[in-house]
């Protein structure tokens, strides 16, 4: 199950709508091992494409170094589909490289850049196996456990 706060959910949806018809992509970082998606980072889609996304390699290194310095990991990896359903494509499955992350797919195929609901679904992708999970949107994440 993915538990995500409303502001982060809205931020992902807004990013997907803004970049439509190209795919939008990014992550939500959180403390290592916490499963808390706390810090939304919108990434540039270096492919600039309606059918493919790829983090820019230089921007991606900066992102990971920043996360390492904060003891964070990518809790959510998200991208949008702009003409198809919010389900991982074969390419998504083949390239999935964060076995601990929630892979969020947003589909903007219904309303594009405009107001209106989107499909927002979450998956685990491990060793080529996809399993969908529930998404629970909360007003705010519960307080972090003291560690």
């Amino acid at each position: 199950m993915l538990t995500i706060d409303q502001a982060t959910y809205d931020g992902i949806v807004a990013h997907a709508k803004k970049d439509h018809p190209d795919e939008a992509c990014g992550i939500v970082a959180g403390p290592e091992g916490s499963d808390r998606p706390e810090r939304l980072v919108e990434m540039v889609n270096a492919a600039g494409s309606p059918t493919f996304y790829e983090f820019d390699s230089t921007e991606m290194l900066a992102l990971y170094k920043d996360m390492w310095s904060r003891d964070e990991e990518p809790v959510v990896v998200y991208h949008s589909h702009t003409a198809t359903e919010a389900y991982p494509s074969r390419t998504d499955i083949g390239l999935a490289s964060e076995p601990g992350a929630h892979y969020v797919l947003v589909s903007t195929r219904e309303h594009g850049n405009n107001e209106g609901p989107v499909e927002f679904r979450s998956y685990r992708i491990v060793n080529g196996e996809v399993s969908e999970e529930d998404v629970v949107v909360v007003p705010e994440l519960p307080p972090a456990e003291t560690r």
Binding site: C25, I27, M43, A47, T51, F52, Y53, E54, F55, S57, T58, M60, L61, Y64, V77, H79, P88, S89, R90, T91, D92, L95, A96, S97, E98
Partner: peptide, 30 residues
Amino acid sequence: NDEDVRFIGGLDAEVTDGDQVVVLPAVAGG
């Protein structure tokens, strides 16, 4: 040392003592 090796010779990129090498699978898909 923070340079994508594709721009500095790929597998032939020079490495010297104390350098830092980082491997990151692309985050990509369709």
